[in-house]
Design a protein around this nucleic acid. Structure first.
Lengths: 137, 137
DNA sequence: GTGTCATTGAGAACATCTCTCAATAGTATA
DNA sequence: TATACTATTGAGAGATGTTCTCAATGACAC
């Protein structure tokens, strides 16, 4: 091997997926994103959408949370570790920061565990949806 | 209507599923639980396993966490709200309690959100698995 | 303009979970 | 104990979400 370079290429689909994810108000499923792209006139295969979403998550440019029956994605400006406040009605999400995660390390140490990662998502209703008592999802 | 009673019945399957879940070291998938029952000689349909697991979760006797491509279950002695420290290698789990969740309410209030629920799971390696550096999963 | 190869798209394959409905079996009552 | 009622079960079809395969496409270097 002389020089194993494999540089990424810029494609229309890649950019469209990134932009559609950024424009989504909150967490969105891969299927929904695919449909949005179709509606916007961008042809992109479902496999490509899954591939790109996976790549964005790996690159730290998107967050993902597993839900019953699937996975939800969201573009994240903040690259480092943070959490979300997600509206269960409209899917809108706000980034939040816990005051201290020291207790997690203490609890792990007390049980002899070595922490690799943790998941914290808070679900509720955003002000807009809370103001509509009769129409919750 | 005179008396709409529909009392639950005690069945072999119901008890076997409850026991197999209690005996599992940590979180386990419905498929794995089904296989364990088969190996133990208890015939139980996959649909029944899913039904009973769902019933246990509803009754507060089991916890469930969504993961990529499925759902994991675990029997819980504690009925009230708590969290887990899960080993990513062997699936073993320990129940932990955060010192205070007041900041979650503060963060929600600051954004105008009404909290309905939150998910917190900490993943890592248990002492046993951490002691085997070459064999992680 | 040309060649290389990363990326794409269609759909098959796979995995998880739910639904349906006839058969089974737990429980109350005679 | 025998019988009737009906909650529960099991097998498999079906729905849904995700990944894999591979030939075709097109971005980029030269």
């Amino acid at each position: 091997m002389t020089s194993t370079r494999s540089q990424p290429r810029q494609t229309v689909q890649k950019e469209a997926i990134r932009q559609a994810l950024a424009e989504a108000p909150g967490f969105i499923s891969a299927q929904d994103l695919h449909q949005r792209l179709e509606e916007a006139g961008t042809r992109a295969g479902l496999a490509t959408v899954y591939r790109q979403l996976g790549a964005l998550v790996t690159a730290g440019e998107a967050d993902t949370i597993p839900i019953a029956g699937g996975q939800l994605y969201r573009a994240c400006a903040i690259g480092n570790h943070h959490h979300h406040l997600v509206c269960e009605s409209c899917g809108n999400a706000v980034e939040i920061d816990p005051p201290s995660e020291e207790w997690i390390r203490s609890a792990a140490a007390a049980n002899g565990y070595t922490i690799t990662r943790h998941v914290l998502e808070v679900f509720g209703l955003c002000p807009t949806c809370a103001a509509q008592p009769t129409e919750v999802r």
